[in-house]
Design a protein around this nucleic acid. Sequence first.
DNA 1: AATCATATCAACCGCCGGATG
DNA 2: GCATCCGGCGGTTGATATGAT
Length: 294
Amino acid sequence: PEEDQKLLAYIEEHGHGSWRALPARAGLQRCGKSCRLRWTNYLRPDIKRGKFSLQEEQTIIQLHALLGNRWSAIATHLPKRTDNEIKNYWNTHLKKRLAKMGIDPVTHKPKSDTLLSIDGHSKNAANLSHMAQWESARLEAEAGLVRQSKLLQTASTNSSFQGQKSEFASTSSSLHKPINQPRCLDVLKAWNGGVWGKTDASVSAAGIGGELGSPTSTLSSAAGIGGMMKEESEEEWKNLPENSIPLPSEEITSFPTSNWESELPVGVNSCEHEHVPVGNFVEKFTDLLLSTTT
DNA sequence: AATCATATCAACCGCCGGATG
DNA sequence: GCATCCGGCGGTTGATATGAT
């Protein structure tokens, strides 16, 4: 209340600067960490509050399947939502919903799937595993490119490269940076320029560039959801008719990896060509989840 | 109305990684 | 190479709200 006003007024006037020094300067009896948390999770003006839309739920589930509990990374795909809010929502709503459906909220696999996987019938599990590997590698590539761009920024004055540099820099996941911009460009560039250019054993060991398609298809899916998010018009998942589960689990597990490859827009490097792969496994998976009432 | 159970969410805590000297 | 500082992240807790009995 009063502290909020002080914090808000100070940051609006001076910016937060050093969080450690902020409390003393703003006249607050708190640690800088606490101030930062209050600001990022509550006071920031660009925070959307209230219920999560269907699209947002879908995005969270999909991204969680890919990224696990990396809430800040997930939050970068959900404009105006904080990692803390997403984390809470997951723990209080979505996790329970998955558990209720007999799906392991950690692995996003049906619990019976562990039995299937013994005899090699779990393409679902394999796909998720591959996707997680892609995403991990992608994030590493992104981080590497950010570092690289920073080096180049100081070492080079080449103007033709500066546009890319700023885009790469924008991929770092900070809540203080604009998060509602389309995210396909940076991701595609990261992949095209970073990981795919490598023949590194560690990269190929992660399943990249092998039998699977481009991870950009995964990411453009996530970016598309975040970027094209409709905020108010979605029908609540609760209102969906019962027994409207769109796909049986068998269909999910039979999703072919080659679909992604064939859907890959070769050479496409722009959001104008953004698309979501038809038959995207994760999407179907979340459809299934979201259409099931508690 | 009182009590208990459950749900929700802001805040706290500890850890980690990057930057700096 | 190291120690230290700082910011950020994710797990967890505790206060409050809400619902059930």
